[in-house]
């Protein structure tokens, strides 16, 4: 077991949470480029993990491996007891438990906000139209845009679009939510409306894995901070330790830059 393996074990002993995502010794290459190097990361049910690190360090690739938007070449990824393999049935089982929010929103531009939210529940979950609508309205209210239900994504601001994207994911009733820099494409004045929704989601007990450089949000919400560089997890700690006493120089440099930019 690597260092992080032991850290992981320790954390779970402390928090008493059952693991919901297990990543062990995962390696991945893009052709010759070693993008993930011996990654060990265990996430407990209800835990909030914030991943940060310089551009190109493999953060997106890591979380995209969890729902098979990318495939890993070595190691084990297990989500809620299901090991991720090439088997399509497992992939779709895992995807049905994992929601994802993208930097670029990726809303369906030809569908209304409401239809964006009901598409998955109707087609993949087999819900009736009425039930799906009720469900969608419930979550659109949670993200505070029920009044936009009949608009098309292009008619909304970036912040509103990202909140729709969150609602769309939640409509699939996932156990885990992945966020890949959800606020990076937003104008500054819209960042908070999205972070507020994410904070509420965190308070509701959702398991969350967020790639973000919003350190204020990380301090408030994270149970665990993960710092990646060059495809490795360099540091993993509670936010208190992470921000006050980072161990590695790489992490110090990074925090220096990001906190005083």
């Amino acid at each position: 077991m690597t260092d992080h393996g032991q850290e992981n074990a320790q954390r779970f002993a402390d928090a008493g949470r059952p693991a919901i995502i297990r990543i062990e010794a995962v390696n991945k290459w893009f052709d010759d480029f070693h993008v993930l190097k011996d990654i060990d990361l265990t996430v407990g049910a209800g835990e909030k993990v914030v991943v940060c690190g310089p551009s190109g360090s493999g953060k997106s690739t890591l979380i995209r491996c969890i729902n098979r938007l990318e495939s890993h070449e070595q190691g084990l990824i297990e989500v809620d007891g299901i090991e991720l393999t090439d088997d399509n049935k497992r992939i779709s089982e895992i995807r049905s438990e994992v929601g994802m929010v993208f930097q670029q929103f990726n809303l369906f531009p030809h569908l209304t906000v409401l239809e964006n939210c009901t598409l998955g529940p109707i087609r993949a979950r087999g819900l009736s139209k009425t039930d799906a609508r009720a469900l969608a309205m419930e979550f659109l209210e949670k993200v505070r845009i029920p009044e936009q239900a009949d608009k098309y994504p292009s008619q909304l601001s970036g912040g509103q679009q990202q909140r729709v994207a969150i609602a769309r994911s939640l409509c699939m009733r996932p156990k885990i939510m992945l966020f890949d820099e959800p606020t990076s494409a937003l104008d500054p004045e819209m960042i908070n409306e999205v972070l507020d929704v994410m904070t509420e989601l965190a308070e509701s007990g959702m398991t969350m894995l967020c790639v973000t450089h919003e350190m204020g949000f990380a301090r408030r919400v994270a149970d665990t901070m993960v710092f990646m560089d060059h495809g490795e997890i360099v540091e993993m700690a509670s936010p208190e330790t992470f921000f006050s006493t980072p161990k590695s120089d790489r992490c110090k440099d990074f925090l220096e830059k990001i906190l005083h930019h």
Binding site: N67, S92, N106, L119, G120, R123, A124, M172
Partner: peptide, 27 residues
């Protein structure tokens, strides 16, 4: 149609055929 549309379809549980039918072809 951008790759993100396929990915978003996958994350809301659509299989490839459904992604074609409900997301990609309409666009």
């Amino acid at each position: 149609v951008s790759r993100g549309q396929w990915e978003a379809s996958a994350t809301v549980g659509l299989n490839r055929l459904q992604a074609y039918r409900y997301v990609v072809l309409p666009q």
